[in-house]
C-alpha cells in the first residue's frame, strides 16, 4: 500500500512527465491554447496510460523479459524477446488510441473536432511510450504498481497541460517581445513551471 501511494505521488510531482522528462511536449505545446481542449486531451492521455501500462507490464513480465516464458515449459527458460519490446509496446498503444478515438468521436463530437489531428497522434505521444519504457526500466513490483504509475503520470501530464493552458489564456493580454511571442514564451513558462515543480523533489512518503 505504501509503495502504491509513494509511486502515485512521485509520478505526479517528482517524476512529472513534462517537467522532469519533457515527454509529450509536442501535443503539450500545440493543444495548450485553451483550458477545455487541454483538459480533454489530458483525460484521454491519462486513460490510455492507465490502460496500456498494466497490459505492457504483463507482456513484459510474461512474454518479453529474459526467462519470462518459463511458464510455457523448461525449454523456454532462456528465451529473451527483449528486442521486440519497442514494437510490441507501440502496437498496444496504437490500438488503444484507435479505440479511444472511436469512443470520443461517438460520445463527444465537439471535443473530437477541437482535438483534431492530436487525437490519433496520442499514439506517438512520447509520454505514453515513455511510461511503458520507464516501467520496463524500473522493473515495478506488480501490475498494480504499474497501473498506479500510469495513473499518476497521466494526472501529472494533465496538471501540466491544464496549468499551461490557463497561463496561455492570460498571456494574450501581456506585452511580450515580438520574437518571443508564441513558442518562445511558452518554453520559458514551461521552464519556470518546471523549476517550481522541482521543489517537490525531496518529497518522501
Amino acid at each position: 500500500m505504501e509503495e502504491l501511494i509513494s509511486t502515485f505521488v512521485r509520478s505526479i510531482f517528482v517524476d512529472n512527465m513534462i517537467f522532469a522528462y519533457y515527454l509529450g511536449m509536442c501535443s503539450y505545446l500545440a493543444v495548450s491554447k485553451n483550458v477545455k481542449t487541454a483538459l480533454g486531451l489530458g483525460v484521454a492521455v491519462t486513460f490510455i496510460l492507465v490502460c496500456t501500462l498494466p497490459i505492457n507490464y504483463m507482456l513484459e513480465n510474461y512474454v518479453l523479459k529474459e526467462g519470462a516464458l518459463s511458464w510455457l515449459g523448461a525449454g523456454f527458460a532462456d528465451v529473451n524477446l527483449g528486442f521486440l519490446s519497442l514494437i510490441i509496446f507501440i502496437a498496444i498503444i496504437a490500438s488503444f488510441t484507435q479505440l479511444v478515438e472511436m469512443v470520443v468521436e461517438r460520445f463527444a463530437p465537439a471535443l473530437y473536432a477541437s482535438l483534431g489531428i492530436f487525437l490519433p497522434l496520442i499514439a506517438v505521444n512520447c509520454a505514453i511510450l515513455g511510461g511503458s519504457l520507464f516501467m520496463q526500466q524500473r522493473a515495478f513490483a506488480s501490475a498494480g504498481v504499474a497501473t498506479v504509475y500510469g495513473l499518476g503520470s497521466g494526472i501529472g501530464w494533465l496538471l501540466a497541460i491544464v496549468g499551461m493552458a490557463a497561463v496561455r489564456e492570460k498571456l494574450a493580454y501581456s506585452d511580450i517581445p515580438k520574437p518571443l511571442k508564441g513558442l518562445g514564451i511558452t518554453f520559458i513558462i514551461t521552464g519556470l513551471m518546471g523549476i517550481s515543480f522541482m521543489c517537490f523533489s525531496g518529497l518522501k512518503i
Binding site: P179, G184, F187, I188
Partner: peptide, 15 residues
C-alpha cells in the same frame, strides 16, 4: 537541471 534546457531553447528561438 531539466527546466533550464527549455529556457536555453527559448533563448535560441528568441535569437
Amino acid at each position: 537541471l531539466p527546466p533550464m534546457a527549455l529556457i536555453v531553447v527559448a533563448v535560441i528561438i528568441w535569437v
